[in-house]
Every structure is written in structure tokens, then in C-alpha cells.
Design a protein around this nucleic acid. Structure first.
Lengths: 333, 333
DNA sequence: TACTCTATCATCGTATAACGATGATTTAGG
DNA sequence: CCTAAATCATCGTTATACGATGATAGAGTA
């Protein structure tokens, strides 16, 4: 495991920062790679923050910092890894051609490249994500998927490495990705030391969607459909299969399902399931036990509920409650 | 977008950054408070990064940034909250008198003040932590406790708010603390929105010590004691009560215990327990089930093992394994 | 070495969770 | 209306978590 790499073999990490970048998207990976150097007692990674100009750059939280280099500077040595940091209000349509050209040229030459949070929009605009399995911040996952249909967006992962393309979900998932890269490059022991030093989990439970709460809370579509939706939203424990809902709407099941899908974009069953899971989340956050919650959202037994919950959030109801609920008795503040 | 609350009602947050500050200690809280502004659609917090001089500041990971203000600048309005960011190699004995004076003057005038990571050393040096319950990075907790015996250091918490004093454990615990402050200031709903947006847990499981792995792995003291220690380290499942160990050393139990405590600083039982727990951690990280691990480190049943583990790490073995173990079958990279 | 208060150990019993397997239903789409 | 695929409702098994309790070992004092 111990290759005595010469200093010149240090891996060059480039982090591209756009205006009003999310500071954590830069700080997370930088501190992880830096800590890897510290723990290994030698320079494994060499960090560079890249900007479009050499001027000081504003982060979204107001901190002003200096990039190490710019996209106009000639590159003596190529990067080993290029990461695009996200920015909260990044609009892929307003990216400069120069920037996209630079990304399109340099990223593919790296051993691997990727993004954190909304940085994936930049890679997508540069055409580097086609046919790749990719993730991004849950709030822009749908946008990414719609604007670039050829990308396989998997919004529920914290990070995904598909070949050389490594994308992280929202903000703090950049830390998880960086740890995974260290793990891949230099082994589990070092990665674990780094995560321990930074007081973060080596492996976080569940996917990203447990943080999203997609608000399907707003009934939409024709008035008759909205009536039906309101019924489900207010009484999620009542039977809400296609047949029952169709009856409520006074339509034939087949016709109702067709109409529903046309207007809402989801099949009735799927929509109902999501509403139920969202309700379940909120109730679990109140601290109620999974068993009770299962009944409240229309499942006859906890087990089926747990499986449905796991399908959506990649974590179990009990686990979710532990992480998101208000204080269970003993808290240290 | 009705951010027309008077600017004066926004809470002013000051973050003090020393040279070679850990960037995450600044970025974490800043991004949390900024996201709170975004979610609330008005300016709840006003952020300031304070340095000893107006010169650009280096973070430990190499990023160079501009402080908003300096300790020499006159303060028109006092801070609502003052946080001291940590730095990896911070030495409290090398802090300038000017800095300590500034901290000692301004911190107590804030509604609350605190630190992240090793920043606690600065507050301690300024004499602001006496008789307070406080936490800091696990790696410096003992140092803090020894240099400032009047401080109640609780190394196992992720953060502690004792009256106006809010201290966070290592690095990423600054995020948890900031979320708790938002929760306290503006309620759970907003805090939850912020943590969800940043893709972080509202409440992380367990304490900080699960990340520490205090290396008691090195036998110390007299040669006879080292022999005994090596036996325990290599065969932690064998009976290692005081009597058995004393016999091994060829001493009377009482004398052995006295000697052990004098040389090592811990009672034999406590030392054995720690060794066993450390071994347990490593074995759990390999992915072995708690039941098996319990037997390997000398517990007759899983239950007793679990309780001992919980005493140390505030989390259960099963939970620990889930967070720290190498891949359980399905992984997304 | 003996004594003693305290903490931990080893159990038992119980409740909850997790998970595989299996027919009966339901769904989505033609 | 019909069909392939997915989901639901169970059952059985195993692992965890936790309270309660008598037995035992710990650490300091005489």
C-alpha cells in the first residue's frame, strides 16, 4: 500500500469556482485533501482553485478569496482531478462560452473529473455527462434531467462515480465524495483517518432524498383531480388505490388513471405513495414511532411501510426518526 | 422577497479567523447562516470574518481570503454572536496579547460567544471558559483540560451550549452547532430547511469520541506492566480483571493496581475497558456483527458489551458498524 | 490486608426492527 | 379487457435495544 511517490507524483486537484460559489463546496474537498496530506505526512494532493479571472472571487456567503489560477493561464501540467464547485443560483444558460470550452477541453484529459452540488450543471452544459450516471443537489435534479435528457440523473445518491465521472449531491456531500476519492486513491485506512479527524462519518446513511421533501403538497390539474388530491392529502390513511380514487372522481379507473398521468405527470399510485411518504417523514420528525406512522399513512403493517419507505429514501423509518426527529430525551444543549 | 426588515434587527455574527485557520470552520457556519437568510427570504444574520490584520489570510488548506474587518477596527455595533474558528496547529501559548485582549473584551459583551474545533483554546487562553461546560476537537481535549483545569471539558459532545458559551467539537461539528443556533434563534422549521438544503443531518448520532480512537495502543510504564499490557492488547478476550493481571505481573492485586495507576494514569479496569472498546471499534469497522465482536473482546453476552460501548461512544455497536464499516453489499460507487 | 460504597457484569424478559420468502392484489400500459 | 411487472400483506426468523435485578468486581480508606 506504501508507494514512495516522489513529490512530482502528487495528484493535482483542480477545483473550478464560479462567481458566488458555495464556499462549502470548495472548503469541504480542500480540507479533506489537505488532511490527507497531513495524515500521510507527505504531499499526496496539490490543490488549485480555478476561476475565470484572477480577480478576487465572492462566495455566496460573502467571503472573498483568491483563486490560485485562471482558465486563461496556460497549464504546465494537466490536472489529475477536476472538480466543479456549485453555486446556489447557477444558471447553466448564462455560462460563458470560454468557460464551457475550457471545461470541455480540460476535464476529459484528467484521470477523473466531477462536480459538487449544482456544479453538475456546468459539466452537463459542456456536454461531458451524456449517458453518465450522475447526481446533483436534489433541488436541481429535475432541472438537470429535463434540460439534458441524455443524462442518467440519480437524485437519491450522495455521490456517484461512473467511470471517470464523479458527481456529488448537495453541498456537504462534497465531503463524502472527497473521502471516497481518498479511499480510492490511497486506501481505507487513510480515508478513515481523515474522516475521523474532520469528525465526519466515513459512510453516511441513506440517500440524498431524505433531505428533499419534494412538495407535492399542492394539488394541481383539473378541479376534479384537485378534489381527489385534497382528499388523499388530508386523509392519507384511507384506501387510495386507483379504483377508489376513480370512483371518487366519478370516472372509470382506466380513464381516471390516464387523465391523472396526463395532468400531474405521475401515475395515481406513485403520487399517492409520495404523499404518504412525505406525510410519514413529517410525522416521524415529530418523534412518533414507525408503527404508529405506518397506520397513519394507510399501511396495514409496519413491514410494508418500511419497505416502501426504504424504496424512496434508502433508509429505514426508525433510522430516519433518529436523525431528523426533535430531541429524544437526553441532549447536550 | 420582503427583506425589508430593518438592517439593524439582523443578528451580527462575527467569526474570528487566525492565521492558517481551518477553512471548514469558517465555511460551515457561514453557509448555514447564509442559507438561513435565503430560506427566510430576509436578512436574519449578517456575517463578518474578523482577522488580526487587514491582510489576506491563509487557510490551512491554502485558500487565501479577505477578512471583513480586523480587531483594530472600531466596532460601531457590537456582535450578537462571536465565534472563534479553529486552526489545525493552533498553540494557545503563541497567541498575541492584543488578540487575547480583544477577545476578552468583546466576547463577553455578545449575547453569546463560542468556538469551533481548536478555537476553544483561544477562548480558554482569554479566560472566558472557566467553570463552563465546553467541548473542542477530540485531539486537543486533553490538552485543553490539562492547561486549564478549571474548565469542564466534555470531549464526547458534538457541541455544547452552556449559557452564552457555545462550543463545537472538531471541524464539521461547526455545522451542527450553527444549525442548533439557527434552531434556537428562529425555530425548528427554519433550521430543518437549512439542514435539508445543505444535505446534512439535523441531528447527528452519537458523540465525537466515536471518531477519536485514542491510541492507548502503546504499552508504557515499567517493563512488567508493559508485558501485562501486551497480553491484554493481543488477547483482549481473556479474563483481564485486576486479580488476573496482578497474578500475571506477580504482584498483589492492591499493589499492582496502585502501581498501574501511578505509571499509566488510569486504573487497570478502565485501561482494559478502553483497549477492549478500541479493539471492538476496529473489528466493527471490518464489518463483523456486534455479537461476534462482543465475544472477541471478552464479553460474555452482547448486551453487556453494548452498554459498555454506549458508555464510551454514546452510540450502539450496530449503529457504529453501519456508519464506519466498509461497504455493506449495495454501494453506489 | 480488610472494609465499603459504588459501578459494572451477567442474566432474564420484552418490545421493536430488519429482512427473506411467498402467494394474492394492484398497477401501468397496450 | 388483458398481461407483465411491481407491490401488498403475511409468516417466520434473527438481531437490537432496553429496563430490572441480584451477583460481582473496582478503587479508595483505614
Amino acid at each position: 500500500m506504501r508507494h514512495h511517490s516522489l513529490p512530482s507524483t502528487a495528484k493535482r486537484i483542480g477545483i473550478l469556482a464560479l462567481p458566488y460559489v458555495q464556499l462549502l463546496d470548495i472548503a469541504g474537498p480542500m480540507d479533506v485533501f489537505t488532511e490527507a496530506n497531513t495524515q500521510a505526512k507527505r504531499i499526496l494532493y496539490e490543490l488549485h482553485v480555478i476561476s475565470t479571472s484572477s480577480a478576487p472571487l465572492h462566495s455566496s456567503s460573502g467571503l472573498i478569496f483568491h483563486p490560485t489560477t485562471t482558465i486563461s493561464s496556460p497549464l504546465d501540467v494537466p490536472f489529475d482531478t477536476l472538480l466543479i464547485a456549485g453555486a446556489p443560483h447557477l444558471n447553466p444558460k448564462h455560462l460563458s462560452p470560454d468557460l464551457l470550452k475550457w471545461v470541455g477541453q480540460h476535464a476529459p484529459r484528467c484521470r477523473r473529473f466531477g462536480s459538487i452540488c449544482t456544479g453538475a450543471l456546468v459539466l452537463a452544459a459542456a456536454g461531458l455527462l451524456t449517458q453518465r450516471r450522475v447526481t446533483t443537489h436534489w433541488a436541481v435534479a429535475e432541472q438537470l434531467s429535463q434540460q439534458f435528457p441524455s443524462i442518467q440523473v440519480e437524485a437519491d445518491s450522495l455521490f456517484i462515480c461512473d467511470g471517470p465521472v464523479c458527481t456529488a449531491a448537495g453541498v456537504t456531500a462534497g465531503l463524502d465524495l472527497a473521502i471516497a476519492l481518498v479511499d480510492h486513491d490511497f486506501g481505507r485506512d487513510l480515508a478513515r483517518k481523515v474522516s475521523n479527524q474532520l469528525v465526519m462519518f466515513f459512510r453516511r446513511p441513506g440517500g440524498q432524498l431524505q433531505f428533499s421533501h419534494r412538495g407535492i403538497a399542492n394539488p394541481m390539474g383539473r378541479s376534479i383531480l384537485r378534489t381527489v388530491q385534497r382528499r388523499v392529502l388530508s386523509k392519507p390513511h384511507l384506501p387510495s388505490d386507483t379504483r377508489a380514487l376513480a370512483e371518487l372522481a366519478g370516472l372509470s379507473p382506466r380513464h381516471f388513471a390516464r387523465l391523472f398521468h396526463k395532468e400531474i405527470g405521475l401515475s395515481p399510485a406513485l403520487w399517492v405513495e409520495r404523499v404518504r411518504m412525505d406525510t410519514a417523514c413529517r410525522t416521524l420528525e415529530e418523534g412518533l414511532p414507525p408503527k404508529q406512522v405506518a397506520a397513519m399513512v394507510g399501511f396495514k403493517d409496519v413491514d410494508t411501510f418500511r419497505r416502501a419507505f426504504q424504496r424512496q429514501f434508502k433508509t429505514t423509518p426508525a433510522e430516519y426518526r433518529r436523525r431528523h426527529a426533535a430531541q429524544p430525551p437526553t441532549e447536550t444543549d
